[in-house]
């Protein structure tokens, strides 16, 4: 009889190799662009030594005014859409998770996840068609509205996941001690939910910040966000200043994700991919 197993059942030969390959594939293009953004040479493929000139150009070059206004639009839109969609998502999560069983629950969930399920290009053109049918002027306002809709499920999922892990006995105890429903929410549930809400907000914020397709359709004339400005610029070829700008955006995204990750870990784990 075989007493000890002949092999480690968890181990599969080659899986480490594939994992390394996976990370190599995911990171190579990003690292290459980062490296070349520091390239002194005008010809973007030859290496001409280390330089920060393209970063200087992003901030002081001919196109810097365009980039600055695009960055401002991106940030303010992402803040407005992130905050609004998070508030809507918090209310929806409490209604869904703490609202008991009710008839329209699965329909309600389908509606909440609709913005993720519908292909983004379809959302984009449907929104465009709708806005022009009702005579809503395309521009900053239409971008904010479309982003709020699109961000709701991204804020909802981590918040609902967090809420599911919180026992309702806390609020019930507060209400037993004569706290009103609002007081129980404000002083008991909200503080416990806070890490989930914050990570939901950060995800919504970054989704809005990164969105290109929807924004591209409904931005109207004259309003640009960073992704649409970059898309417009790469039409004429990938210039080094675009690589510098991309690197900055990349680092910003990584900073936000790291923050979200640390907050999520501290708050008992709630992130995308969980429900």
């Amino acid at each position: 009889m075989q007493s000890a197993k002949a092999f480690d059942v968890k181990h599969y030969p080659g899986f480490l190799g594939v994992t390394v390959l996976c990370l190599f594939i995911l990171y190579t293009p990003l690292i290459v662009v980062m490296v070349y953004s520091f390239n002194d040479s005008l010809s973007i493929t030859r290496w001409g030594g280390f330089s920060l000139r393209w970063y200087v150009e992003v901030f002081n070059g001919v196109e810097s005014a365009k980039f600055k206004s695009a960055a401002w639009n991106s940030l303010t839109i992402a803040l407005a859409a992130g905050i609004t969609s998070t508030m809507i998502a918090v209310a929806a999560a409490i209604g869904m998770v703490r609202g008991g069983q009710f008839a329209g629950k699965s329909v309600s969930f389908a509606l909440l996840s609709m913005p993720i399920m519908v292909p983004e290009i379809v959302t984009a053109v449907a929104t465009l068609v709708f806005f022009s049918a009702i005579g809503f002027t395309l521009g900053y306002g239409s971008i904010v509205v479309a982003h709020i809709v699109f961000c709701i499920p991204f804020a909802y999922l981590p918040i609902a996941a967090r809420l599911q892990g919180i026992e309702s006995s806390f609020e019930e105890a507060a209400q037993d001690l004569y706290a009103s429903r609002w007081q129980a929410f404000r002083h008991v549930l909200l503080p416990i939910m806070a890490p989930g809400i914050l990570s939901g907000f950060l995800l919504a914020f970054i989704i809005s910040l990164d969105d290109f397709i929807i924004t591209n359709f409904i931005k109207g004339a004259g309003v640009e966000t960073l992704p649409t400005a970059i898309f417009g610029a790469v039409r004429q070829g990938i210039k080094p200043n675009i690589m510098a700008l991309s690197t900055l955006m990349l680092l910003f995204s990584i900073a936000i994700v790291t923050a979200s990750y640390l907050i999520g870990r501290k708050g008992g784990g709630s992130g995308r991919g969980e429900e």
């Binding site: 998502a89 609202g99 609709m114 913005p115 309702s168 019930e172």
Partner: peptide
Amino acid sequence: STYAPVRGWLLLPSWAVIGVFL
């Protein structure tokens, strides 16, 4: 079901926004 009595009000904003704009 701590919030069942106000469920409708809590879900209304998300239904309204997604319903009207998507």
